[in-house]
Computed example of a mutant assay.
Amino acid sequence: MVAPRMRVIIDNDFSGDPDDLFQLVHHVLSPSVEIPFVIGSHLSPTDPFDSSDVQAENAVRIARETLALLGREDDYPVLLGSNVALTSLDTPIRSEAAEAIVAEAMRDDTDLPLYVALGAGFTELASAFLIEPRIADRLTAIWIGGNEHEGLAEPPSGADQVEYNLNIDILAGQVVFNHSSIPVWQVPRNMYRQCLVSYAELEERVRPMGRIGAYMVEAIERVTGMAGRHGFEMGETYALGDSPLVLLTALQSAFQPDSSSSFHVTVPTPTVELDGSYTPNASGRPLRVYTQVDVRLMFEDLFLKLAAFHRANPAL
């Protein structure tokens, strides 16, 4: 029996790109992590995935729906984040989720290290820090997002100037990067774009795995269908870019626990500008930037856990 080695708060924009559903399911099926709660976060305004003004509320609903398909809806509280981004560098949004991050970080009844696994923007974590700055010494943020770093990678052809997740709440990114001392492990755009699965893999190793497998693949099919209606053919792969959140937590090494099968460099944390670019800051605190992730371990573990879950729960 595998016992939890860490606490992982899951914070994601579940009404957006369905890669977050794969991350949520994979984390829930990973016994080495204790999940205190899940946060439903907002997207950018008018995002094509969800252009409503209740994106966080929709994210909560979808996360609960996903957990219900696993029969785990009563095991994990799903908390509401803010529906909007920060409007100030020094004023938090006191959402249910931000307050819960503070409470979890300030616990003194557990020695399990705390990670905040962020597959979206920084609104809730930045607000939590503004509410209680002491949390910076009591957790590690793992973030899927941000532009490429000069000297490490080039942006893809036609890339948006501001990376998708950073653009959700640039002010919150500035709070975390520029004004806090929170340790950050960053999986920037060039890295999460490498997390590709083929549709052949999804058909063989995800769809047949009961209701949850079909649900996950159908969520991707809705995206490819929407793209096709707009004249964009997506080929035969899909990026499950939030999955490194599982790899870098649940799948750490046994001895000297760390994400030892993936590579990173440590650089001074740059200053995040309002246009999403970085300005070098030689005195910035150490920032862990991933330069290679173990895609084999990450996806093979997902597929095998889904298969084991389906064998154990054939009615689900």
Rank of each mutant, 00 (worst) to 15 (best):
R5S: 13
M6R: 15
M6W: 02
I10G: 01
D11C: 11
D11T: 04
N12C: 15
D17P: 03
D20F: 08
F22E: 03
Q23Y: 03
V25S: 13
S30F: 05
E34Q: 14
I39E: 05
S41G: 15
H42D: 06
S51I: 05
A56Q: 02
A56E: 03
N58G: 07
A59Q: 03
A63V: 05
L69F: 01
G71Q: 04
R72Q: 15
V84L: 05
T87W: 00
I93C: 04
E96A: 12
E99Q: 15
A100V: 10
V102F: 00
E104S: 10
M106Q: 10
M106D: 05
P113E: 04
G119T: 10
G121I: 11
F122R: 08
F129V: 15
L130Y: 00
R134E: 14
G151H: 05
A153Q: 03
D160M: 12
D160H: 13
D160C: 09
N165T: 14
L171T: 10
V184P: 03
W185N: 06
P188E: 05
R189F: 11
L196P: 00
E204G: 04
R205P: 02
V206H: 06
M209C: 15
R211F: 08
G213N: 09
Y215I: 07
M216C: 11
E218K: 08
I220P: 05
E221I: 07
M226I: 11
E233Y: 09
G235Q: 05
L245I: 11
L245V: 12
L251C: 02
S253R: 04
S253L: 07
A254G: 08
P257V: 12
D275P: 02
T279L: 13
P280G: 06
L297M: 12
F299L: 13
F309Q: 07
N313D: 01
